[in-house]
Simulated scan of single mutants.
Amino acid sequence: MTLILGALLSGCSMVNHMMYKTTGDVMQGFSREHTIPYLMASGDLAMGCAMSEATAPLLMSFGRVTSEPDQLAIMLYLSAGGCAEEQGREHELAALAAFYESDGNAAEDAMIRQKRAYALASRRYLKSWEHHNAFYGEPGTGECPDFDDDLDEFVYLAGLLSGLQALNSEIQSTSSIGVPKNVGTVVGRATSCLENDKWWGAPMALRATVWAMMPGALPEGEDAFERLAMADRQGEEAGVRLSHVFHAIAAINKGDEARVKAVIRQHAESLEARPANEDWAFVDAMATSMIVAVSDRMWVENTGHRTPLGQLGTFWDDQQKEVETMDLDDLL
């Protein structure tokens, strides 16, 4: 009787395992074929953020019963890292506003919250980077992956971005998260596996940003900011302006405020001139969100408040245009 009961329980366990495995495989396939493309075509960053934070534990748990969902994890942890980074930026703005008002205690508290948020962002981005390497192999080694389709290539690009973001967030957190310090160089080399024209100039923009920021990384005869300007034009024409973000980051690193302002103005003008690419509206919206964040930081530092609504591309020190007035006495 005991043997029969044991066999029945063992059989139930096996059936459950097969059911879980099948469910996990279906969920992974559906997410890749439908959820990610659907999300990329939307421009709702908050929705994407909420989805990644809410579903990552569920979807990643299927790795216990079937193959590890490495490719899906790249996108989940990249997006979840962006959620934490957004919180960090909000705390940074609060700190800057407090500094502007000479409220030292509020500024210090906001800075502590900022560092905590960036530490979380770095850990999430690092997970994305690790899953990227598990799925595609160690990047920058000289051999490129065999991509199955366009989405496969895009996720590869997203993984490269997660590597750089992990390092940047670790620096912002002033903590030791364990991000490899050579990740910038590795990412710069790995971008050569992607077609620059196909991906809105982003691979070259990413590579040029590494050149601009890493001492000794600039190849002889190259100009990082010329390359970034070229990538900007490609992104604007494609309606996916991710290169503007890289350009702004490189300019900030050089302390070139005039160039940062010019990139923000250029982004704002491009938004007026060309709508977002329908298939990649989420990426374009993400780029705009990050450009607004750069603008907000500058505004708060100088005025105590963010970029005024509807005035992205303008600055507190712009010369006010003289308003022409009509002499009404002549009309009487």
Rank of each mutant, 00 (worst) to 15 (best):
K198G: 10
D197P: 12
K198D: 06
G184H: 06
F225S: 01
A229C: 03
L228Y: 06
H244E: 02
N196M: 06
W200L: 09
V210W: 03
A238G: 08
G188A: 06
G201M: 08
G216T: 04
T185Q: 15
G221V: 01
L218S: 04
G239Q: 01
K198L: 11
S243H: 10
M214S: 05
A229N: 09
M214W: 06
L194F: 03
V210A: 05
R207S: 13
G235K: 03
A212M: 04
T191M: 14
N196Q: 09
V183S: 14
L228K: 05
A205C: 05
G201S: 09
V187Q: 10
L218F: 00
P215D: 11
R241H: 06
H244L: 05
R241E: 02
D197V: 12
A231W: 02
D197I: 13
V240Y: 01
R241S: 06
D197Q: 14
V186I: 15
G216Q: 05
P219G: 13
M213F: 04
V210I: 15
A205S: 10
T209R: 11
E222C: 04
S192T: 12
G239S: 01
W199N: 00
E237Y: 06
G188I: 13
E222Y: 10
R241C: 05
M230D: 11
S192C: 04
S243I: 05
E220T: 07
R207L: 02
E222A: 13
F225V: 03
D223S: 13
V240K: 01
M213H: 04
M214G: 00
V240S: 01
M230V: 08
G201P: 02
G201K: 08
A229K: 04
N182T: 15
N182M: 10
V183Y: 14
N196W: 08
A238D: 14
S243Q: 11
G235A: 06
G239P: 00
V187W: 07
N182L: 09
L228I: 02
E195Y: 08
A231R: 01
D197R: 15
L206Q: 08
G216P: 05
A217F: 04
L194R: 07
G184M: 13
W211F: 15
G184W: 06
N182Q: 08
V210K: 00
E220W: 00
V210Y: 01
A202D: 10
G201Q: 05
W211R: 12
M204D: 11
D223H: 09
V210P: 11
K198T: 13
G239Y: 01
T209Q: 13
E195C: 08
V183R: 11
A217D: 10
F225C: 02
G184E: 12
H244M: 03
A231Q: 00
M230W: 05
G184V: 02
G221Y: 06
V240Q: 00
G235E: 04
L218P: 00
V186L: 07
D223A: 09
T185L: 15
L228C: 09
G216L: 00
A229F: 02
T185Y: 08
W211Q: 10
W199K: 00
G235C: 11
V186E: 07
S192K: 09
R241L: 03
G201W: 03
K181T: 14
G201D: 07
P203Y: 02
V183E: 15
K181N: 14
W199Q: 03
W211D: 12
A224M: 02
P203C: 04
D197A: 15
A224R: 04
A208M: 06
S192A: 13
W211N: 13
T209E: 14
